[in-house]
């Protein structure tokens, strides 16, 4: 294809995006669009799969049958999200095995929040309330992103996430209306998950390398700092309802801006975790690799069996 032809295709493509048309797998797309989408969608899928681990840590110890069932269902939903997101990603011409390989070799990233340990039951509440809360803020705009398969997957993901967030809040609510020991457990969880949840919305706009291009492709509708402010403004009143204190001495309502002012985020910690040195980075990745390696014989056997079955069918036909 000549340079001119490519330019004309690109111009058409950009115009479609401006008109809010969906780009579908078989449509022409710039190579950079395809790569960026593989990166973002797979990162999102990996986050769902790695995100199963911190909560999975409490399934066997959930405090009641009702909570055990709800937690199992929630973690299963995350597996389901991983499944549709990997499928959406595969439409861009990459296989699930290749995507796993990228995760296992640390070439692909996942959300850093899952590198923190879940040390008490209250963490199940805090993750639902805060982490899923922040995820929703990040993800709702993606329901109208330009790439069709991703946008459609996100519609379903967001519905389930909002259910998870309510479930998390309800766990916190129960703790906050329980014994002093339970309330303390809830406060401790908030203290540990608050700042990582703010970091989860990404580096400040000045540090964010992908923002500009992603805004153009509608992979992003608001900047990280805008999303963070929205999360804080939404969450502070919820903490008030719970009777919990947000662990930020500088947090206060600003009449002029109509937003909460908040303290400085420790970005050193963020980068430490992103670069692989958080409290559980090694454990999370090792758990995923171990599951994959231990499952190799199962997957091989399933393939071998399917092949035998199809040979039998061919044999019958002949």
């Amino acid at each position: 294809m000549s340079e001119e032809q490519i330019k004309s295709l690109e111009a058409d493509f950009d115009a479609r995006i401006v008109r809010d048309e969906k780009i579908e797998p078989k449509d022409w797309m710039p190579e950079k669009y395809r790569k960026t989408h593989i990166r973002q969608i797979s990162q999102h899928a990996h986050s769902e799969i790695v995100g199963m681990l911190p909560e999975g840590n409490w399934i066997t110890r959930a405090p009641s049958l009702r909570r055990k069932v709800a937690l199992l269902a929630k973690v299963q939903d995350e597996a389901g999200h991983g499944l549709y997101l990997y499928s959406a990603c595969e439409t861009l011409g990459i296989s699930r095995d290749e995507l796993y390989e990228q995760l296992h070799s640390r070439k692909a990233k996942y959300s850093s929040i899952f590198n923190y340990p879940t040390v008490t039951w209250a963490d199940m509440g805090a993750i639902g309330w805060l982490v899923d809360g922040a995820a929703i803020i990040n993800q709702v705009p993606l329901c109208s992103t330009s790439y069709g398969p991703y946008a459609r997957a996100m519609v379903r993901v967001c519905k389930e996430e909002s259910f998870h967030q309510r479930q998390g809040f309800e766990i916190m609510h129960k703790l906050c209306n329980g014994t002093p020991e339970q309330k303390e457990m809830a406060q401790d969880a908030l203290n540990r998950w608050w700042w990582p949840s703010l970091m989860m919305l990404g580096p400040t706009d000045a540090e964010s390398v992908h923002t500009e291009q992603s805004m153009k492709w509608k992979l992003k509708r608001k900047t990280n700092d805008e999303l963070r402010q929205q999360f804080i403004d939404q969450t502070v009143p919820q903490a008030d309802i719970l009777g919990l204190k947000i662990p930020d001495a500088d947090l206060k309502w600003n009449e002029e801006t109509g937003h909460y002012d908040f303290g400085e985020i420790q970005w050193d910690e963020f980068w430490q975790v992103v670069k692989g040195h958080g409290p559980c980075n090694k454990e999370r990745l090792n758990a995923r690799k171990k599951a994959w390696e231990r499952g190799a014989w199962v997957r091989d056997a399933a393939m071998a069996h399917a092949e035998k079955q199809s040979n039998k069918k061919i044999g019958k036909v002949v």
């Binding site: 066997t60 231990r294 190799a296 199962v298």
Partner: peptide, 29 residues
């Protein structure tokens, strides 16, 4: 079965085993 959630040999089997666990626990209740 709940112990295995997140550690299955593939996403599909992971989801299926969790499903069975959920069914059994629902019956228990």
């Amino acid at each position: 079965l709940g112990e295995l959630c997140g550690h299955g040999p593939s996403l599909e089997t992971d989801i299926a085993c969790t499903n069975i666990s959920l069914d059994l626990l629902g019956q228990v209740r």
